[in-house]
């Protein structure tokens, strides 16, 4: 079979590419979360190349040795039922491989879901990332500013993206910083990441959401804390506030360029309940009408009361529910009625 040669070459080519090829974005991480993923991917590729090698060597051997040729004409192949020993071998070895990969998977999944190692003690920078039609809104409650279609991050500080959508499901993805996660209309999902190298990184929506999907990109710019603070100050001084009317108009517009505002939309259009699928959810379309009712509960965030701004986004707690809903505790709602 002539094609195995090029295939193998491609695969070995791939392994060589892994060490230091910068065009493969996913394998060129600029933060600990993406690095964990990149290492996982490379580890799994190496393991799988091993599996492929075994199969290919056996395959070539069989085809070359046992092909019908003039010299073995009249040869009658034996009747073979199988071999328990061999069959157990090729059951047990894959099981071991799967076990190893399972351990790696569980550990790395845990690792990338949480704040990257070494950064646990820092206060994370919370950025709400919401999608509407074919654009991304990034709200910085701590700083009280908002951007559209670009996001600036300080390096060496944990960043917690909280995602939700004003429409179809989207997926926030900055491949060089972390893996992707969905943004949906009825709950808030989280990505924890840290950028440890300053630079401009491609960010995009990875989940198809209609006509303008292909254009739904943004730039993630990682910069030092000082530059970041300077930028925040700059936005606060030079940009206008985001009014509700303006925001509603923005939601309607399919595509816009970059925008910056000196306030966030969170005050008049707060995110859906955090946690997940709360009972009796009453979200209205685009979350607008209902969110207005909650306005009082949401003090305008300002840089002075950081803590409040961070922990108060739990709008849909039932009035008769004494404690805020712990998302992990959802099962009680199923049995309690």
């Amino acid at each position: 079979m002539k094609k195995r040669g090029p295939l193998l070459a491609l695969f070995f080519g791939l392994t060589m590419l892994l060490s230091g090829c910068s065009s493969l974005t996913v394998l060129d991480p600029k933060g600990p979360a993406a690095r964990t993923l990149s290492d996982t991917i490379i580890f799994s590729i190496l393991m799988m190349v091993g599996v492929l090698a075994v199969v290919y060597i056996l395959y070539v051997y069989m085809l070359v040795k046992y092909r019908a040729k003039k010299s073995n004409e009249g040869y009658v192949p034996p009747h073979e039922e199988g071999s328990t020993k061999l069959e157990i071998t090729w059951t047990v070895i894959p099981i071991i491989i799967v076990l190893i990969l399972s351990v790696v998977t569980v550990r790395t999944t845990m690792a990338v879901e949480n704040v990257p190692e070494g950064y646990e003690n820092q206060e994370p920078l919370v950025i709400y990332a919401s999608s509407s039609n074919w654009k991304w809104h990034f709200s910085y409650p701590e700083q009280g500013i908002e951007t559209v279609n670009y996001v600036n991050l300080p390096t060496h500080r944990p960043v917690e993206f909280r995602m939700y959508s004003f429409g179809p499901i989207t997926s926030l993805w900055i491949p060089q910083l972390a893996g992707q996660k969905y943004a949906m209309s009825d709950m808030v999902t989280k990505i924890n990441l840290v950028a440890d190298v300053p630079g401009s990184y491609m960010g995009k929506n990875a989940n198809f959401n209609g006509e303008g999907f292909a254009h739904m990109n943004f730039e993630a710019l990682a910069m030092s804390q000082a530059e970041f603070d300077e930028w925040v100050q700059d936005v606060k001084n030079n940009e206008g506030e985001l009014t509700e009317a303006e925001f509603d108009k923005l939601l309607e517009t399919p595509h816009v360029g970059r925008m910056s505002f000196a306030s966030t939309h969170l005050s008049f259009s707060p995110p859906p309940e955090e946690g997940h699928h709360h009972s009796g959810s009453t979200e209205k379309e685009n979350g607008n009408q209902e969110h207005q009712d909650n306005k009082e509960k949401f003090p305008e965030p300002s840089s002075t009361d950081e803590d409040e701004a961070e922990f108060d986004f739990d709008p849909n707690v039932h009035p008769d529910d004494p404690t805020p809903v712990d998302p992990g505790d959802e099962s009680t709602h199923h049995e309690g009625h």
Partner: peptide, 11 residues
């Protein structure tokens, strides 16, 4: 399904 959407959830 309940495992995915209810019991196994954290956000």
């Amino acid at each position: 399904t309940l495992f995915i959407f209810v019991w196994g959830w954290y956000a």
